[in-house]
Design a protein around this nucleic acid. Sequence first.
DNA 1: CTATATCTGTCTATCGATAGATAGATTGCG
DNA 2: CGCAATCTATCTATCGATAGACAGATATAG
Lengths: 191, 191
Amino acid sequence: MMAKTKTDMREAVMTAAKATVQSHGYNALSFRELAKEVGIKSASVHYHFPTKGDLGAALARRYTEEGAAYLAELLATSNDASWCMDRYAAIFRAALANDNRMCLCGIMSAELDDLPAEVRTEVDRFAQMNVGWLTQILSRARPSTGEQDLQECAMAIFAAIEGAQLVARGCRDIGIYDRTIRAYRTTGLIP
Amino acid sequence: MMAKTKTDMREAVMTAAKATVQSHGYNALSFRELAKEVGIKSASVHYHFPTKGDLGAALARRYTEEGAAYLAELLATSNDASWCMDRYAAIFRAALANDNRMCLCGIMSAELDDLPAEVRTEVDRFAQMNVGWLTQILSRARPSTGEQDLQECAMAIFAAIEGAQLVARGCRDIGIYDRTIRAYRTTGLIP
DNA sequence: CTATATCTGTCTATCGATAGATAGATTGCG
DNA sequence: CGCAATCTATCTATCGATAGACAGATATAG
């Protein structure tokens, strides 16, 4: 019983692992459980990802890359900062709607002290990527604002949305996320 | 080698456990490690807290109670909403300043799916307590606003601050927390 | 074309460490 | 004595990781 290609099984492992981390965190990721889900043995998972850190780093890296690709698409699709922000907030909402999951890097941030160095690096990159994109959006909405202020505000938006997701998840109530985002809008934090 | 009273050792265990959870989360809490830290055996920890869930729930309950007591004191000390919010933000900052720790219930929210029911209950209560206090503060700052809007805004502030803590922790940079709170202020999210 | 060698992906079996939890003995205070 | 608190010893379950074997695909040399 062999997978068609190495890549196929590697993909399957990553998909299963991503779902687990978003639900239960990096620490809860188990080679045995993962193997069972994709139909191989845990030793074979080690073949694709020698250590757990390798797997975690690969997950976070891909998560950032896919997010960046989608955000770039948004940026190219519309010049409307408000519309882009709607779509942005919808990404984090989708994780909650999908079985109360969290942002992969958000949940990893909470486990920071237990992460191998290579995973931390990728978590950092995710935040940077998000802040970078948000800064671009803000520069459209508030063209006369200085770069410094834009970046601070971008960071604030990123943090606020991660927090909305965290708290809504904790309360198992996606309505909290929606109302919180609305409040961010009302106060002017989000364009 | 016996502790003076049952309460003494119970306190010592809770203090050590609190620090561990704030740094590494509920899942990383280990009876053996905890016992080693306070100088007893793991079986003795089970004497004070029969199950891990009991310990976790006790931790979260006390965390909420202590927080509520401090916040009530703030509320009684000053009528200045802005000053109260400064102190409030300082609480979450202190956790970061203390070895990059997190809000106990914030980090537990990220681990939600792995928490025993009795722990979840306490995590919920913490959020409710915070939103309740923030609503009171907001009603001082914006007396003409409806209760509904006040509560939504209070929830938004709570979520935003938890998020600022999460992200700043992820980046191991307390400056991010400070700048983010400042941005919240500038935009008017926080009084 | 065939025989040999290497590579790929998976397997079985096992290691040492650690987890939460429990039973039953022991210690020491009032 | 009797009870409160801690101990020793152990159980079962799970963890990440490794060693070694093997089947099938592929590449290479004669």
